[in-house]
Design a protein around this nucleic acid. Structure first.
Lengths: 177, 177
DNA sequence: TCGATCTATATCGAAGCTATATAGGTCCGG
DNA sequence: CCGGACCTATATAGCTTCGATATAGATCGA
């Protein structure tokens, strides 16, 4: 699931500029579980153009760089669907927080507490953001994905509030040894 | 949280070769939520050696490449702890499955069902793997992380079994339009 | 006994991310 | 009403990381 494929998918829902594609990851239905940086989106769009999977039109703007609006072509749409018919790559969840918890015994107790606080706040923020969005206007797939996200964040919050004491106490005990 | 930091962390728990570090991600307590490839581990260990954060000893083996066993130095231990005291990078969860679900309406119903089946099987496998491991022999941090993993996988499985019908039906309805 | 899988290191090319450059616009607070 | 922060918008250089591949003998099951 490379950045080119992700861009193609987003363009099946409508034309967009590189900038708009990036924003979609942050703001709307595509958030969580997919992401890409400008440094990969712009080259991806150029290459998709060369390959004939998308077309571009430049909209001149006064005193600003031209908006380059990308549209998916029929070939691009076919290629995207074909890529969804192949076996999907596995999920990758990389969590510095979880890794750090493995080393709680090396850290001052206050730092472990701080990490937990920060992470919990982060998860609450993501959950709130998902709930903010109007579920009424979402497509079937988007509703499903939003529900998936809610389930994951809620489970994490529940686990952390139920079990944070264990690691904080354990950690205090180990540090005292 | 780059590969160098991850390697340092693992070496705080004991000496290891590059190969063994990689195995730890697959088999044991470090699994899920962290990972690195050989292509990044070996260069990381070389650079850590140059920087004085780890030391190496070569154990000659008959008719095999030498085992290069890495040990963390006091400087390495300090650097690792310092990196845990700085703000942690955010989690990154990239899920081709979740992305694909956003486009269920473009796919044949059988494919959507197949994706769900595959993903559910994958999550069950990860959950089973976590439960296989003897929780008795784990450190406090490892127990906490294993519990975290179980909570996440269980929530995903629960959500998918409860809601898969929605997206499969919705998808069938849209395809029929 | 033959192929598959495991131990073990290593590198190359491709992919992706971070930080930065550019450049004007908007919006809010002081 | 001015300044700073943030937004739109594209783009690239450099570093990091990944995936695939090379090497090579050991072990183990069919």
């Amino acid at each position: 699931m490379d950045v080119r494929t992700i861009c193609l998918g987003i363009l099946t829902r409508g034309d967009a500029t590189g900038y708009e594609i990036k924003k979609l990851f942050e703001d709307d239905g595509y958030q969580h579980f997919v992401e890409a940086s400008f440094g990969s989106i712009y080259p991806a769009l150029n290459r998709l153009t060369d390959e004939g999977y998308v077309s571009v039109r430049s909209e001149a703007q006064e005193k600003r760089p031209d908006r380059k609006v990308y549209s998916i072509t029929p070939a691009g749409r076919s290629a995207f669907i074909a890529s969804l018919l192949k076996p999907l790559p596995e999920d990758r969840h990389r969590s510095p927080f979880v890794f750090a918890m493995l080393f709680a015994d090396l850290l001052p107790q206050s730092r472990v507490g701080g990490m937990l606080d920060d992470y919990i706040a982060q998860m609450q923020g993501k959950l709130a953001h998902l709930n903010d969005h109007d579920t009424a206007c979402l497509s079937g797939g988007e509703k499903f994905v939003a529900g998936f996200g809610r389930a994951v964040y809620a489970a994490i919050l529940e686990f952390l509030t139920a079990h944070r004491a264990e690691i904080e106490e354990q950690q205090a005990a180990q540090a005292a040894e």
